[in-house]
């Protein structure tokens, strides 16, 4: 009984402490970070938005997307990985498929994707890389592997009236290697590459 009374007393002390913490950690801290970020790194803090010309912007109505959020493309452009976010590329529903490593449906889907991509790009199914046929973790993966980008060069060049050499050069310009040589994996940002393709096609 004495312990219960003491517990109630400490809960009240706890609640008051928590309210003070809520003011400091729940408002002061995030708002201070928001304020500093808004002044010193506004482009990053607002989602790394880019315009159709690839310029940085913080105005969503000028933007064609976020540099670091993947988006759907069409057959004239470089295509991203499969996405399990909502109906595809929906940031309101970020997620992976969560299908297990031996899931039969997943295996069938992967084989089907492989066949489709091989046909679309006119290559052997064995040459289609893993990232092209697997859904990413977030469903918003902004990147593809350099191998998957290379595979798509002939189709994109044809569709935009550009030489393959030109498009291959654009891909090379957009390959990010491993950070510091060892972190993560080499990759190509699909949106920025597509912006460059559109640019090149427009300027001829």
């Amino acid at each position: 009984m004495k312990d219960l009374f003491q517990l109630a007393r400490h809960s009240v002390a706890g609640l008051l402490t928590l309210l003070l913490f809520t003011a400091v950690l729940g408002l002061g801290y995030p708002l201070a970070v928001t304020g500093i970020a808004a002044v010193s790194m506004p482009w990053r803090a607002n989602g790394s938005l880019v315009t159709a010309e690839g310029d940085h912007t913080t105005n969503p109505s000028d933007a064609v997307g976020s540099q670091i959020i993947g988006q759907a493309a069409d057959g004239t452009l470089f295509l991203p990985r499969p996405s399990a976010a909502g109906e595809g590329w929906d940031p309101l529903s970020s997620y992976g498929s969560n299908l297990g490593p031996d899931n039969e449906d997943l295996v069938a889907t992967i084989k089907q994707r492989k066949a489709e991509i091989a046909q679309r790009e006119g290559v052997d199914p064995a040459d289609v890389p893993a990232d092209a046929v697997t859904a990413s973790a977030s469903g918003l993966d902004p990147d593809i592997s350099p191998a998957y980008a290379a595979l798509q060069v002939p189709r994109v060049a044809r569709a935009n009236g550009l030489s393959e050499k030109r498009v291959r050069g654009l891909v090379a310009d957009h390959i990010d290697g491993r950070t510091l040589g060892v972190l993560g994996e080499p990759r190509v940002n699909v949106l920025m590459l597509n912006v460059a393709v559109r640019d090149a096609a427009r300027l001829g």
Binding site: R81, G96, S97, N98, L99, G100, P101, D102, N103, E104, L106, V107, I110, K111, K114, V128, P129, A130, D131, V133, T134, A135, S136, A137, S138, D141, P142, D143, I144, S145, L183, G184, E185, R187
Partner: peptide
């Protein structure tokens, strides 16, 4: 990458991000 799906895809990239790959994941 053991398992049927990684074998079919050519790597255990289902549910992983390109920038991280298998190792950083």
């Amino acid at each position: 990458g053991p398992g049927l799906a990684p074998a079919a895809a050519g790597g255990a990239m289902e549910g992983k991000e390109t920038r991280f790959g298998e190792a950083a994941s």
